[in-house]
Amino acid sequence: MTQRTRTRETEDDLSDILGDSESGEQAGQGESFRSRTKRKAVNFFSPRYFLLATVALTISMFVGGFIPFVETIGGLVGLFAAAFVLGGLTSESRTLETATGGLVAAGLTLLLGNLTLLAAGGTTVAAVGLGAGFLIAGLGAHFGNDLRDGLTRDL
């Protein structure tokens, strides 16, 4: 008797995870398992937003890198500013996509700007640069999202 109850609880847990309210009954009526999985995956990580964030953050890092006397820091400031704006403009929290886009932007900037350094074995410098890009873009998106949320919330 307890085995049957455990099986039913496991089925209920599985149906909650998959999004079925009536476990097997809804699968025939509504959307298929594949389309539900695809929709949930896109809600978790949006490839379109990732591509937009990557392009915007790469451009901002290149532009920030042209500031005289502070090329590297200027690129990171540009990266943070663009991530902050992206976080403030989007209605949903897309911190993961923005942070990953920052990682790619930092990688492209590092690759194109310091090709001789990387060829000479600067993997530690590359790892620190990629980590900094991920962290700074993620923080910028989070702070921008937090500001937008604070400004639009009712008191």
Rank of each mutant, 00 (worst) to 15 (best):
G24Y: 11
R148H: 05
L115R: 11
F62C: 04
T100D: 00
F143G: 00
F33C: 01
T116H: 12
E31K: 08
A137C: 05
A83M: 07
L96M: 11
R36N: 03
L79E: 08
A119L: 15
P47Q: 01
Q29S: 14
D20N: 13
T116N: 13
L18D: 02
V125M: 15
L89F: 13
G87S: 09
R48A: 13
Q26W: 02
T72L: 12
R148S: 10
A106Q: 03
S21I: 08
A137Q: 06
G78K: 07
R148C: 01
S23V: 10
T109R: 14
G74S: 04
E25W: 07
S21D: 14
T124N: 07
V55Q: 07
L112Y: 12
L135S: 13
E25S: 10
G129R: 05
A41W: 02
L115E: 11
F84W: 14
V77H: 03
F134K: 05
L18K: 02
D154H: 07
E31W: 02
T10C: 01
I17A: 12
G24F: 13
L155P: 09
G107A: 10
L135E: 03
T100C: 14
G30R: 14
G121L: 10
S93K: 10
R39K: 14
A120T: 09
L76N: 09
G138M: 06
I136R: 04
L18Y: 12
P68Y: 08
F62P: 00
A81M: 12
T123H: 12
Y49T: 11
A83T: 09
T5W: 06
G19V: 04
F66C: 05
G64S: 08
T72C: 00
F143L: 15
F69H: 15
G150R: 11
G121Y: 08
G122I: 07
T100K: 00
G107P: 06
G102W: 10
G101R: 09
G129D: 03
L147S: 02
L52V: 15
S32Y: 01
A53S: 15
Q3W: 04
G138I: 05
L108E: 03
R36T: 02
G131L: 11
F66V: 06
E9M: 05
N114S: 12
V125Y: 15
T116Q: 14
G140E: 10
S46A: 04
V128H: 01
E97I: 01
